[in-house]
Amino acid sequence: MEDKLYIAGRQVDSRLFIGTGKFADYNLIPAVIKASKAQVVTVALRRVDFGTPEENMLKYLPPDIILMPNTSGARNAAEAIRIARIARETGCGDWVKIEVISDQKYLLPDNFETVKAIEVLAKEGFVVLPYMSPDLMAAKRMAEAGAAAIMPLGSPIGTNRGIKTRELIQILISEINLPIIVDAGIGRPSEAAEAMEMGAAAVLVNTAIATAENPVLMAEAFGQAVEAGRKAYLSGPGSTQRVAEASSPLTGFLRKE
């Protein structure tokens, strides 16, 4: 069965996107990417720290992947725009994950500032994938502003608590004509499969892989879970039957026809 994900016209072969933060050692990353079969990989930008030796993170990434720098650290639209423009200068390509976080306690994204950033960056030719709190109206504004996909959070970043926002994400999947990519909160492969069974176009996983005892094995497990969940979605699961209710017939009056 032909089942390809397209984002901004580009075919993406894996529905598992992975993040490269929080790894104990960059040396793990090539094996993690290979085991997960991920094609879209996120990176971040930071000021150089003169105290520690610098290495070129990009050299750990295979050449055929799609790099997606994020704008982490941005607290408002202007900062996100600035970071996105810098990211493009690195030669990472046009993809950018907009992440605007003005709340340092829960690390929840600021949907309003995110919309503003999308408006500017989409016009500049970026392929913009906004990380957001799942809200239908905000997602619509983001789509109108030119987002290429919508990335609602399953639960707050790094919490590994699974898809607590299930009902709201389900609404986005039904109503928004863009790929919905569940980002943040997915802690186990079973939760990635759950997102895919719901009809999500892809999931983005970082912490759960990076902090596993064996990140490479976990990356492989996530890759398989995403594929399994997608197949389950495509096959149209027969949901559990509702408990039969004893009720009087409602169509009895038609029998005399």
């Binding site: 490269t20 000021r47 150089v48 993170m57 990211a87």
Partner: peptide
């Protein structure tokens, strides 16, 4: 001057 580099990130 801002000197920026790419690091791992999610």
């Amino acid at each position: 001057l801002e000197i920026i580099r790419i690091i791992g990130g999610g």
